[in-house]
Nucleic acid binder design. Structure first.
Lengths: 344, 344
DNA sequence: TTGAAAGCGCTAACAG
DNA sequence: CTGTTAGCGCTTTCAA
């Protein structure tokens, strides 16, 4: 059973192959007669014709493929998703792309392995990169000459479009909320603080909220590790061994918070009575936590959607308009913060 | 800046295009002289040549692409991942595929939308389908004539390879453990119980454990909904309104359990003192739960790895050897079960 | 408004 | 051991 190709359709419809191609791609704005279109479409349906995108890509230089790169955050770890955030984001990206007739080529990368080869080899029409990706590799990607969207990266380069959130402002809101609840000594717990990463911005937001309230940022109130549950536990340990100096913490990711809670609770520290916590992301996890997390909510689905939209818009327009898209944040109050009881 | 093609390499190396192709694909087992190989490889590197896979696919009918389909479980919901299980699995699939030089084409599907078109259009070399996918669509996929691996499906058809776990046995272990802890009245909570789905097997396992212990399976001890957090909450509600008849529950997915715990705890039902729970999957969530979940552990990473391996093996071998792969399960004891206090 | 013809970049017989 | 020669299935000038 041979695959039906454009020629078969052409024969069936009594037209030429190129005519079929025209009606299928509505190329030079509708220059095909309605009847012909009819006949062709009927033939297509009758034969169950499905175009061969490889052939199409070859001759048209468009692949209808969007490359999604989720860099391995923790080298050596085979899992790219230590964080449910990725799953939620990816879902939204996939969904949006599909709505527009695009498909997704999903990749991780090993430490330092470059993605350029994959992207070029497949001729992707655009690339979405989530999180931090080494600058050199990023630069190499420019040679692809397709739109590249950076999600949650502060790399400033006209060549890349970006989509992110008000990280600094969010962190400030979180910290301020803790301050408003009477906390004076507040820990900052995050994944690694990298150049151009989100955590550095969040740290800045934390600092500025502290300063605005006339509070000092103590060096030993800052905890930085990796974005995963395990680190949360480790941070709890560290917190205790440093002498439990703070009455509250701003944690930059829900996953870490989950670990932190566990680590603290195991040591009979009560949340929020003993330590209040404001978290960040509002993945579905945060409602599952016990206590449910007061956290900075970001619209992950929207982020994914915009990322795709950005790629598609850029792919359509001839010239390169550098675009930055910043999504708003809001504080969701649940049960992990309480007013600090006044002391002597 | 024109893309460098195989011809450029050929010229650079002073050989013909086909020779380049041969050394790049080591086609008819090493019939190229070492020196020529040398020269070609050098030219490849010097020019930074990257093959165009679209062209390659077109002429070789192999795409080095594996299609991964994650059917939308809850229609209308844009998210395919209401369950972290998928993220963990997908990570492992991506990683393994990449190790073998394959790329991943990731898709969801709308309700009833068929995947055949996508798969055919891209010429995927194999397909991995996770979870339940309507039988008719599944059948249509046979026409692709590429290996298809079903993950967690009990569809019996020589045409499909399958990879799964001992669902029935796992459920039995879970239930038996509850029984051993003195529980006589045990609820069964799961997602939708579909033909060929895993839940029906788990239900059978539950039933057989009950029967072996001489316990009746009460109709009102069975709860069935969707595989998500929200349903867990709903099930808790239902449990309470049905009069709180059971002292324990076997829940077929960690996500549901999370919701169930929350729903119960909000109503001042203590876990495990009032109700003991054994869960299923052992996604990383289960340690984050409060109390940490006693659950049936499955090796999700291994599942993903095997799925890819199955596709690749099948793609290589000429004839079709139907393969079934069943991964073992084990009970992980944490804190969500306690011995039933003897009553009257 | 439609068709003929020339590729897109690569692979795979088949010669030599 | 290597080069020649056809395509793979589709798009896209260019003519008609």
């Amino acid at each position: 059973m041979k695959r039906v190709g454009i020629k078969d359709v052409a024969r069936e419809a009594g037209v030429s192959a190129s005519t079929v191609s025209y009606v299928l791609n509505r190329t030079p704005t509708e220059t095909i007669s309605p009847e012909t279109q009819q006949r062709v479409m009927e033939a297509v349906n009758r034969l169950g014709y499905v175009p061969n995108l490889n052939a199409r890509s070859l001759s048209s230089r468009r692949s209808n493929l969007i490359g999604v790169l989720i860099p391995q955050t923790e080298p050596g770890k085979e899992l790219m998703f230590s964080n449910p955030f990725y799953g939620e984001l990816l879902s939204s990206i996939e969904y949006t792309a599909r709505q527009h007739g695009y498909h997704l080529l999903l990749s991780g990368t090993e430490e330092d392995q470059d993605y350029l080869g994959i992207a070029r080899t497949r001729g992707v029409d655009g690339v979405i990169i989530v999180g931090t990706y080494p600058g050199a590799n990023l630069n190499a990607l420019k040679s692809l000459e397709v739109p590249i969207v950076l999600v949650d990266s502060y790399v400033k380069d006209e060549a890349f479009h970006t989509i992110g959130i008000e990280d600094k402002e969010g962190a400030r809101m979180a910290t301020r909320y803790l301050i408003e609840n009477g906390h004076r000594s507040i820990a900052f717990v995050s994944g690694s603080i990298r150049e151009n990463g989100v955590n550095i911005k969040r740290f800045q937001g934390y600092c500025s909220a502290m300063q605005e309230a006339g509070l000092a940022v103590e060096e030993d109130a800052v905890y930085s590790g990796t974005v995963d549950y395990e680190y949360g536990i480790a941070a709890a340990q560290e917190f205790l061994s440093r002498g439990r100096r703070q009455t509250a913490a701003f944690v930059t990711a829900d996953v870490i918070t989950m670990g932190l809670l566990r680590g603290l609770q195991q040591n009979h520290v009560r949340i929020p009575e003993d330590v209040s916590v404001v978290s960040f992301d509002d993945v579905y996890l945060s409602q599952m936590a016990y206590p449910a997390l007061t956290t900075i909510h970001q619209d992950i689905a929207e982020k994914g959607k915009q990322a795709v939209q950005l790629v598609l818009n850029a792919a359509r327009s001839r010239e390169h308009h550098h675009t930055e898209c910043i999504l708003p944040l809001r504080l969701v109050v649940r049960d992990s913060v309480c007013k600090r009881r006044d002391e002597g």
